[in-house]
Design a protein around this nucleic acid. Structure first.
Length: 228
DNA sequence: TTATGATCATAC
DNA sequence: GTATGATCATAA
């Protein structure tokens, strides 16, 4: 017998959120999906965000498309992160879409990247593809805030990337720019285009881009916490 | 083997 | 198209 059940509403405080997240540690995705009455896909090929949706459901985050932190009242963003057997991240972490126009005067302090990463509840989940989706286990949660050094690293990369965007060099930016934060396409497909500034300051159409945390960055913050 | 560039589903 | 949730798949 057990009383594990999804939170039906956003948690009223941080303690409730953390307690629920800690209760989920050790369960498989199959168990959590069944208890929540959610159908489990055969794999993630066509359901890349499924684990994120499942954990949102369990933690009472209002699912859907709202440009806000998952737990706005608590100022906390939820991120699931796929890890290998050694606890290292298997994928980069999407942060937010990069604004390609209207950036004159934007600064790090008020940027979307900084706001999104102010406080993050990381939920590690076994992510190796050899493990059937239903058998992958949820790990212990980590409520993280960037250290001074981490924020400095993020800021330097963000400023470099935003400078290039403002100067009309967006199409020359590759994922190799940035030490901990990178810019990569974030689109439904190659036909999805958005407005940007091109060379000579001309208006161009280009692939929407997103900011992503590189694995070296998330690996260090996980290792620091879990003593890996 | 790995990271970059590309892509998938859904709501509005 | 943009927002949410991310992982896939192939070049190197």
């Amino acid at each position: 017998m057990h009383s594990l059940r999804p939170l039906l509403h956003p948690p009223e405080n941080e303690q409730i959120l953390l307690a629920q997240a800690q209760r989920l540690a050790g369960y498989t995705l199959g168990e959590l999906a069944a208890l929540a009455g959610l159908a489990i896909p055969p794999d993630l090929k066509r359901d890349k965000g499924w684990i994120g949706i499942l954990l949102e459901l369990w933690l009472g985050a209002s699912a859907g498309s709202k440009p806000e932190q998952d737990f706005a009242a608590l100022g906390i963003e939820l991120k699931t992160i796929p890890i290998d057997r050694q606890g290292r991240p298997l994928e980069t972490t999407f942060v937010c879409v990069a604004p390609l126009i209207g950036n004159t005067g934007v600064v790090w302090e008020t940027s979307h990247v900084r706001h999104k990463l102010k406080r993050v509840l990381w939920i590690p989940v076994e992510g190796e593809r050899q493990i059937p989706l239903a058998e992958r286990r949820v790990g212990a949660p980590l409520l993280w805030e960037p250290s001074e050094e981490e924020e400095h690293q993020l800021r330097l990369d963000w400023e470099e990337l935003m400078d290039l965007i403002v100067l009309g060099q967006v199409e020359r930016i590759t994922a190799r720019h940035g030490e901990v934060l990178q810019l990569r396409p974030k689109a439904a497909n190659g036909k999805a285009l958005t407005e940007a500034i091109g060379t000579e300051g001309a208006r161009i159409l280009t692939l929407p881009r997103g900011f992503y945390l590189k694995k070296n960055f998330t690996a260090r913050l996980l290792a620091r916490h879990f003593h890996l």
